[in-house]
Amino acid sequence: HRQALGERLYPRVQAMQPAFASKITGMLLELSPAQLLLLLASEDSLRARVDEAMELII
């Protein structure tokens, strides 16, 4: 289940942060499945989480 969510998330994360897409997707997969579904449904929520992840990385 998580694998399938990751496969759906990755291209969207890659479009926002290509250099760190794998790392960010891995970080996002730590969230609950319900939270992941919310990110897939909301571009704004996904962008906010990706921005948060980038702050942790750099």
Rank of each mutant, 00 (worst) to 15 (best):
T25K: 02
V13W: 01
R8S: 10
E30I: 07
E55A: 09
S42W: 03
P33E: 10
L9A: 01
L29I: 10
A4N: 13
Q3E: 13
L9P: 01
R8A: 09
E43H: 05
L40N: 02
T25C: 05
H1L: 09
P11H: 10
T25Y: 09
I58V: 07
I24H: 00
A21V: 04
E30Q: 09
S32F: 07
L9S: 00
A21F: 03
L40Y: 02
A34Y: 14
E43R: 06
T25E: 01
P18K: 05
Y10E: 03
R2C: 10
S22T: 07
I57T: 02
L9Q: 00
A15V: 11
R2H: 12
D51L: 12
L37G: 09
R8C: 10
L28T: 00
Q3M: 06
I24G: 00
S45H: 11
D44A: 14
Q3L: 04
M54A: 09
R2P: 14
Q14P: 02
D51C: 06
E7M: 11
L38T: 08
E43T: 07
H1R: 06
L9Y: 02
A21N: 01
D44P: 05
L31Q: 06
Q35N: 13
A21S: 03
L28F: 06
L28S: 05
P18W: 04
S42C: 05
L31A: 05
M54D: 00
A21E: 02
E7C: 08
G26N: 13
A34S: 14
L28D: 00
L46H: 01
L46A: 00
V13A: 01
E55R: 11
E43V: 08
G6R: 11
A53I: 15
V50W: 01
I57V: 03
E43L: 05
L9W: 03
G6S: 13
R47E: 05
Q14W: 07
H1V: 09
G26C: 12
R12Q: 14
M27E: 02
R12P: 04
L39R: 00
Q35W: 06
D44T: 07
L39F: 03
S22G: 12
A34P: 13
L36D: 00
Y10S: 02
L40M: 10
R2Y: 14
P33V: 10
M27Y: 07
I58R: 09
T25R: 11
P18M: 07
K23Y: 07
T25I: 11
A53D: 01
K23F: 12
S32Y: 11
E7N: 05
L36M: 06
Y10H: 11
L31F: 12
E43S: 09
Q35F: 13
A4C: 10
S45A: 14
A41L: 14
Q14S: 09
D51N: 12
M27Q: 04
A34Q: 08
Q17E: 04
S42P: 01
Q35I: 14
E52W: 10
M27W: 15
P11Y: 15
Q14E: 14
R2L: 15
L5Q: 03
A48F: 09
S22R: 08
Q14T: 05
L31D: 07
L37S: 05
Y10Q: 03
D44K: 09
I24C: 00
A34W: 07
S42F: 12
A15T: 09
A4G: 13
S42G: 06
R8L: 15
D51Q: 11
L36Q: 02
S22Q: 09
A53K: 05
Q3N: 15
L46D: 00
A15H: 12
A48G: 08
L5K: 02
A48D: 12
L38Y: 10
Q3P: 07
Q3K: 09
Q14H: 10
L5F: 14
T25H: 07
Q3F: 03
A41G: 13
L29D: 01
F20A: 05
L5D: 05
I24F: 01
A19Q: 08
R12V: 12
L5W: 11
L37M: 15
A19S: 12
L40Q: 03
Q3V: 14
L9I: 09
P18Y: 07
A48S: 12
A41D: 11
L29W: 02
P11I: 15
Q35P: 04
A15P: 02
P11F: 14
K23T: 11
A41H: 08
S45N: 10
A41K: 05
A21I: 01
I57M: 08
A41E: 12
A15Y: 10
R2K: 15
L31K: 04
L46S: 00
S45Y: 12
P33H: 14
L38K: 08
L5N: 04
E52P: 00
L38P: 06
D44S: 12
R49G: 04
S22I: 13
V50L: 14
M54P: 00
Q17D: 03
A4E: 15
I57C: 05
L28Q: 00
Q35A: 12
R47G: 05
A41W: 06
L31N: 03
D51E: 13
D51I: 07
L31Y: 09
R12W: 09
P11K: 15
A15D: 11
R47F: 03
E43D: 09
L5T: 03
H1C: 11
Q14F: 14
S45P: 01
E52K: 08
V50M: 03
S32T: 14
E55D: 12
V13T: 01
R8G: 04
V13M: 01
L9T: 02
L56H: 07
Y10V: 04
G6K: 14
F20N: 04
D51P: 01
I57S: 02
S22Y: 15
M16V: 07
L40H: 01
V50D: 01
M27H: 03
V13L: 03
M16D: 01
L28Y: 01
M27R: 02
E52Q: 05
L9K: 01
S22K: 13
G26A: 11
F20M: 11
E30K: 13
L40R: 00
E43C: 05
D51R: 10
A34L: 11
I58N: 13
V50H: 00
P18E: 07
L28A: 00
R47C: 05
F20W: 09
L37A: 15
L46T: 01
I57Y: 03
I57R: 03
A34V: 13
S32R: 05
L37C: 08
